[in-house]
Design a protein around this nucleic acid. Structure first.
Length: 326
DNA sequence: GCGTCCAGGTCTACC
DNA sequence: GGTAGACCTGGACGC
């Protein structure tokens, strides 16, 4: 997911000032909001840091991440209510959640489980890679859970924002969407805009305000189809169809091609596709092909031995250096 | 400061 | 099925 990945600048991981300025919204508003804390257990093979920093999503609004405190904040929208901010922190083999708002406990926990992928079984993947030099690190570190948003719709829009542009532009487009269309929570931070809020804006808004360029018509069309119910991305999560068929379904959304569809499929828990983009390709050339370009077919052959896990295998293979001890 | 070039993924038209 | 060109932005570069 170059998504995450295109031209990613990981120096921001330590951009403490920026994080502190924006981490948890308006302090005064936060003080007035109802505060609840919960604790949820995590699987034995779960790593907070490797999940949060698995790809660039933590750097996109409405996520806020403070690596110094190992704290991830996210503003989401409960099914029937106003947006609420939740802080997620590791706490001795569990996760500690602090919520500012009135959301039901079950709803908060369900959202965090979805975001952090706590119910995703990775034992088979770890067993497969643990004997593979160069990939065994991921099994040892419990890496491989790819952070996702609270809804498939949000991940779909973000995926579109990663296509054909630098990471800086991706961040800008997502930030603009949240700041200009997202509804504020009690702590002042904003949730990702609803499809209805997006559908209410004309194409010119996306071109002039969001700075989405030629993607503007895609945003407008996508939002309209989702708001009207013609497309329901949440159904893709439990779709009872083979991955190639689901990929075709996803690609019906204008603006979503092979890369974006396969990237979204990874966030749905299907790793059959590699989601190749320029960043992954250049990483492969450097690591496995003596820095020389090669056809995608060669990359696909290289990872074919990982079967249905190949998309996760290439991602772990290319991101190992992100977690080198600093 | 201005103009030019380039990278990035998808769509459309064409072969 | 494969390929070329257009789409748009922002960064890099030269002047």
């Amino acid at each position: 997911m170059s998504v995450h990945y295109t031209n990613i600048d990981r120096s921001h991981v330590f951009a403490e000032k920026t994080l502190r300025d924006t981490a948890f919204g308006n302090g005064e508003m936060k003080d007035k909001a109802k505060k609840s804390t919960y604790r949820i257990s995590v699987p034995a093979n779960f790593s907070f840091r490797h999940t949060v920093e698995s790809h660039g999503w933590y750097d996109l609004a409405p996520f806020r991440y403070d690596p110094q405190k190992s704290e991830l904040a996210y503003t989401f929208r409960p099914a029937n209510g106003s947006p609420e901010a939740v802080r997620i922190k590791e706490a001795k083999g569990a996760l500690s959640l602090t919520v500012f708002g009135e959301a039901a406990r079950t709803e908060v926990i369900a959202a965090v489980k979805h975001i952090m992928r706590l119910d995703e079984p990775l034992d088979e993947f770890y067993s497969l890679i643990s004997q593979t030099p160069g990939l065994d690190w991921a099994a040892n570190a419990n890496a491989g859970r790819l952070l996702r948003s609270s809804t498939v719709y949000e991940d779909l829009v973000k995926s579109l924002c990663t296509t054909n542009c630098s990471w800086a532009l991706t961040k800008k487009m997502v930030t603009n969407l949240v700041e200009l269309l997202g509804e504020p929570s009690a702590d002042g931070s904003r949730a990702f805009p609803t499809a209805s809020a997006m559908a209410a804006r004309p194409e010119s808004f996306y071109r002039d305000e969001i700075r989405a360029g030629y993607r503007s018509s895609y945003f407008a069309e996508m939002a309209d189809s989702i708001a009207s119910g013609r497309v329901d991305p949440e159904k893709w999560l439990d779709a009872d169809m083979p991955t190639p068929e689901l990929k075709k379904e996803i690609k019906k959304v204008k603006g979503v091609g092979d890369y974006a569809a396969e990237n979204l499929l990874k966030l749905l828990g299907r790793y059959d596709g590699l989601a190749l983009d320029s960043w992954l390709r250049s990483g492969f050339y450097k690591k496995h092909n003596r820095e020389r370009k090669c056809p995608d077919r060669k990359i696909e052959r290289h990872y074919s031995k990982f079967g249905k896990w190949r998309g996760l295998a290439i991602w772990c293979d290319m991101t190992e250096s992100w977690f080198d001890e600093k």
